[in-house]
Nucleic acid binder design. Structure first.
Lengths: 214, 214
DNA sequence: GGACACATATTCGTTCACGAGTATTCGTTG
DNA sequence: CAACGAATACTCGTGAACGAATATGTGTCC
């Protein structure tokens, strides 16, 4: 499938896209990213920053342009992008945009063990999530409007995308909650009985053994 | 925020949820998960499986129940869940369900470097993505209907969730494509000119320096 | 009946991500 | 003008994640 990259960390394309504008030192790359509101995108980890820059250099995507010192502060190494780096950035961008990848959000992991909770508790927790989601959505919408005033739309698409996805999630949770509240959720009675008595319902017994070894 | 777990890997709750049914050896945990169609959820990595089980043991969430051998095959170690393990599973499930976490899908990383591509190429690539998304959605829908025949809805919620999110993504991409095709996308002319001439448009010059150091 | 693919079951070594620490300087507030 | 918090700039060690290798068992197709 998608050929495996020499440098795999998703911080890398963001860094390349920063350095492509002009040579920079690592700390400034992070600072520029942050100023553009990508902190949420990338959650910049200081530990990774220097490792990733190092790897980019090792594979010829960046090269040292200069080293300077201001006062007694640690020395700065300023990096410049190479032709290979430009090529890698464009190629990677193409791949990221055009090929949907299976994602593994935490919520999915949570849903896949939802059965460990009782239906009543699940309902309460889902309601909590919905509240939090709605708050996050409102905040995100507000911040988009604010940024929208002086940042071109082109640099806000990721945030618009995220907002759209979060809204879809909220809608889905809402509809699940409806089914749980109204009792329309199929198998709800079984689920409830199972948690009340602790007995594995016959409908599930055979199911649980699927994939056994031996 | 969410207190940091002794064992952080999201494979862990899935494993605990498997072992809670009856004692099992690692390979069988994976095999059971796979049979339940969680392979996509978790993308089981053989390398991680044994590390994670080991860590679960180290922190007292699992304990050795038995070791057996069949023929000349490697020895199996069968694990059993502990009370601490049960508590951890439930607590973790609660957290995963009720607290939305910032996610970092690859597409978002792609969108955040979308400007490195020309508007025309971006359009083509987004169309590719939409095609692939639609195929994935159709496949996912088909598999849900098939499973739905004999697996209770409760064990398919993650897949329903994923489907809903993918559909939202497709809708969002579609609407972005419309704006690009019709020319309604704000700043499209600027974006196009910039890629044609290579000159940084004045609207962006000041923007690009935001967050500079010094 | 022999060959080949697929399943069983795990170990090991390497790479990589990242948290936490460090040391200086700047800006601000009382 | 002193003091303190924030920003600057990076280093290092730990531990987790994973790829790849290993080796036998089992089913099946001709």
């Amino acid at each position: 499938m998608s050929k495996r990259r020499k440098v795999g960390n998703l911080l890398a394309p963001a860094l390349l896209a920063t350095v492509i504008q002009r040579p920079t030192h690592p700390y400034e790359m992070a600072s520029l990213l942050r100023a553009r509101g990508k902190e949420d995108d990338m959650e910049i980890k200081w530990g990774s920053l220097y490792t990733v820059v190092g790897n980019l250099v090792k594979h010829g995507f960046l090269e040292v342009a200069d080293t300077t010192r201001r006062g007694a502060r640690p020395e700065r190494t300023v990096y410049r992008i190479t032709d290979a780096g430009r090529a890698e950035l464009v190629d990677w961008a193409r791949e990221l945009v055009s090929i949907p990848q299976p994602e593994h959000p935490k919520f999915k992991a949570g849903l896949s063990v939802l059965a460990t909770l009782s239906p009543d508790e699940a309902t309460t927790l889902l309601r909590d999530r919905l509240d939090r989601l709605e708050q996050a959505i409102a905040a995100s919408r507000a911040s988009l409007t604010r940024y929208g005033r002086d940042v071109p739309r082109l640099f806000l698409v990721e945030d618009e995308y995220e907002l759209a996805v979060r809204e879809a999630e909220a809608a889905w949770v809402r509809s699940l909650l409806d089914e749980l509240a109204s009792g329309a959720f199929p198998g709800l009675a079984m689920w409830r009985r199972w948690h009340a008595t602790g007995e594995i319902p016959p409908e599930m017994a055979e199911l649980a053994e699927r994939g056994s070894v031996d």
